[in-house]
């Protein structure tokens, strides 16, 4: 299966990647080749196979409902480009 230009632009939008018009043909070609590679899986007979949700044949371990993490705000906020009064600042997002 090869991807259309529109599909690639849609995927780029979902991934918040800006894609130059002059690069798009090349990206379409490269992504299509990856999808085609994966397409080989479609050929495998899976009629009698139930869908696998996880490759490991194990079950989830659970933790007790207890507060174990201390407040490390000051330390982690050193990694943020911009903070004010303890909140992270981002470009204005409003509906």
């Amino acid at each position: 299966m090869s991807l259309s230009k529109q599909q690639v632009q849609h995927i780029a939008m979902l991934a918040r990647l800006s894609l130059d018009d002059r690069d798009i043909d090349e990206v379409v070609e490269k992504l299509s080749s990856i999808v085609e590679f994966v397409d080989q899986l479609q050929a495998a007979p899976t009629d009698d196979v139930s869908p696998m949700a996880h490759p490991m044949n194990q079950v989830q371990r659970l933790r007790a409902d207890a507060v174990t993490e201390p407040n490390e705000r000051d330390r982690v906020q050193q990694n943020a480009p911009s903070v004010s009064d303890g909140v992270y600042l981002v470009p204005k997002v409003i509906e």
Partner: peptide, 11 residues
């Protein structure tokens, strides 16, 4: 969205 001028604040 209010109180941070050109930004939004995230808690």
């Amino acid at each position: 969205h209010e109180g941070f001028a050109e930004n939004s604040g995230i808690d």
